[in-house]
């Protein structure tokens, strides 16, 4: 468990540095829901960097899934849960204009009241859902 805290800090540092690198090199904010959803509606000039970012993210995913499969352990839940959960995450992050990365990391770090509020609300809701499900004796 102690090891997990070190890895959490190390991972958090990489996330922060990755987001800073994007900011300093291209002036873009590392908000993954916005980067993805932008692919659906934006014109060519605004799409290119998003495609490059997602390619980089996916390359790292493939590398780490091979190097350390334990970090990608199987999601055993019924597929319907993924369908409902995925829809809610997509729809909700678009209404809120951000997710864990855009609001939770980048927004909170620049002390945006909007992002701090969003983060408290989505984190609080998720905690309530999980504790509620456990309390009711579910998964």
């Amino acid at each position: 468990m102690e090891n997990e805290f070190t890895l959490a800090l190390l991972g958090g540092i990489c996330i922060g540095l990755g987001a800073i690198l994007l900011l300093f090199s291209a002036g873009k904010i590392a908000g993954v829901s916005g980067i993805c959803s932008g692919l659906l509606r934006l014109k060519d000039s605004e799409r290119k960097w998003r495609i490059v970012f997602i390619t980089g993210l996916m390359t790292s995913a493939v590398v780490w899934a091979i190097v350390w499969p334990g970090r990608f352990d199987a999601d055993q839940s019924y597929w319907l849960r993924s369908l409902i959960g995925g829809s809610l995450v997509g729809y909700g992050t678009r209404l809120a204009n951000g997710c864990t990365s855009g609001h939770g990391v980048c927004g909170v770090a620049r002390f945006s009241k909007r992002s701090i509020t969003a983060t408290c609300v989505f984190l609080g809701t998720a905690i309530l859902v999980v504790t509620g499900v456990r309390f009711l004796g579910g998964a």
Partner: peptide, 14 residues
């Protein structure tokens, strides 16, 4: 941009 995303993703995995 590519390497920033690679680093960002590595952080999530680690």
């Amino acid at each position: 941009i590519y390497f920033s995303a690679f680093l960002f993703g590595s952080g999530l995995a680690i």
